[in-house]
Structures are given as structure tokens and as C-alpha cells.
Simulated assay, not measured.
Amino acid sequence: MSAVTVDLNADLGEGFGVWRLGDDDAMLDIVTSANVACGFHAGDPAGLARVCLAAARRGVRIGAQVSYRDLAGFGRRYIDMTPEDLAADVMYQIGALQALATAAGSKVSYVKPHGALYNTIVTNLDQAAAVARAVHAVDPGLPVLGLAGSAFFATAEDLGLRTVPEAFADRSYQPDGQLVSRRKPGAVLDDAEEIAERVAAMVNDGRVSAIDGTTIPIAVESVCVHGDSPGAVRIAAAVRERLTADGITLEAFT
């Protein structure tokens, strides 16, 4: 058995009412962890309950994907919130998903910020600290998924939270290790074989090619494939197949 293990995660439960986004069931057959929406950027209670039950039946770990309160913008718009308001929103979301996960016979095993919140707390210390404090207040044993070297990780580690660095299979990186804005060309990748090769280099060698062609180091314990990307299932399957072929064991980090 390989000594190298990595988690494969995807954002799921992002439909709303009759509107569906992505193929949650197909992705749950591929990933080892599911970042489940909590109703603030996407997801309605009945749909989230179904995703939690489907994940529990497959033994896939459930994570709370917390966000700004921004259904119309899918959580991809920055909101200038007070730390107190943001912390309360994060605690509320974790609690809501924990109830649904418990009812499904599982639990919330980690927390991952979504969208604009994820990107903001890479550098915004006040909001980063608010999210970290919220997670710690709910359950200091909950790991947090995010970007290595971020303000979020620094504040989380100060509180004693476990930090799990992730890499994005289908997103381009800037030379400083941050993600290229979705507003810019080339920010989202769509070639399944190219993405699989890229992920293999991340996991095996700890490196990735930035958008300017330079090679930068990357820390990765979990790989994210976005469930809402075009061809998401095909991309996730290609990544899993490539990692398995390289002798890497896919398993949840929790």
C-alpha cells in the first residue's frame, strides 16, 4: 500500500428548490469528502438533507461549506461584515448542517469556507479571525480546510484548530500561490487529462505551474474538484483514476 494518501473533496448540495446544479450522486461515488452547502450561498433544507443521507450511505465525510449570506451571487461577492456578524453567521450554518448530518446518521467532520469568503480570509485578518473563532466556539475539534499560508490558517492554528491545506484541481494559481480570480481568462480549467496530470504533480511533487508559467510549491492534504464546473464528474473521475494509478491512497483526512 502506498505511503502517500490524499483526500478528494467536492462542493455539493448547491441546488435550490427545483433548480439543480451538478450531479451530487455521481460525485459522491468518486470523492472522499463532501463540502455541503449550508443554505447561505446555495442549498435548501430538503436538498441538503438528501445530500447528507447520500454521503452517509457511502461513507463520505461531510463538511460544512460556510459562506457569506449571498444566494443571488452564489457566495462569490465580498460582503463587508463586522466580525461579530460573520462569526454568528458561520456558527449558524455549521449548526444547521450538523442537525441534517446527524439526522442522516453522520456528522459534520470539518469546515470549509466558500467562494468570496474563502478568498477574503486569505488576507483579511479580521474576517479570518472571525471564522476561526466561530469554528472553535462550535467545536474546537473540527478541522478547517483552506489555503496554506493564509491569514485564516494562522488564526485557526493560534486557536489550536487543525488546518488542512487543499489544492484546487481545476483552478489556476497566481505566482504568489493565491487563486486567479474567476473574472480573469484562464481561471478555470476544463481539460480532464491536463487537470489529472496537474493534480498528480501537486500530490507527488508538491508543485504546480502558475498562470505565468513559473513553478511554485504547494501544500496539499486534500484536492478540490468543483462540483459545479462543466464536466465535473468526468474531471473528478480522471483525477481519481490518475492518483490511483500512481499508487496514491484516496481517503478522507478526518
Rank of each mutant, 00 (worst) to 15 (best):
V4D: 04
L8Q: 10
N9E: 14
A10S: 15
D11M: 01
E14M: 04
V18W: 13
V18E: 11
W19R: 11
G22Q: 04
D25L: 05
M27V: 00
D29K: 14
V31G: 04
S33N: 01
A37V: 06
G43H: 02
G43K: 04
G43I: 01
D44E: 07
D44V: 07
P45I: 00
R50N: 04
R58D: 08
G59D: 15
A64G: 07
S67T: 03
R69Q: 14
L71P: 13
F74V: 12
R77D: 10
D80A: 10
D80M: 11
M81F: 15
T82S: 14
A88E: 07
Y92R: 11
Q98F: 06
Q98W: 13
A99W: 13
A101N: 09
A101S: 12
A104K: 09
A104P: 09
S106D: 08
S106K: 15
V111F: 03
V111T: 03
P113F: 01
P113T: 01
G115T: 11
Y118F: 00
L125H: 12
L125N: 09
V131M: 05
P143M: 06
L147A: 12
A148G: 12
S150V: 04
F153Y: 04
A154I: 07
A156W: 00
L159Y: 05
L161S: 02
R162S: 12
V164S: 07
P165R: 15
P165L: 03
A167C: 11
A169K: 03
A169C: 01
Y173M: 09
Y173E: 03
L179F: 05
R182G: 09
R182E: 07
K184D: 08
P185C: 03
A187W: 01
A187H: 05
D191C: 01
A192V: 00
V199N: 15
A201F: 02
M202G: 05
N204V: 13
D205Y: 12
D205V: 02
D205N: 11
I211W: 15
D212T: 08
G213I: 09
G213Y: 03
P217Q: 04
I218G: 05
A219K: 12
A219L: 10
H226D: 03
S229A: 11
R234G: 05
A237D: 00
A238F: 08
V239C: 03
E241T: 09
R242S: 11
T244N: 15
A245D: 06
L250M: 10
A252V: 04
A252M: 00
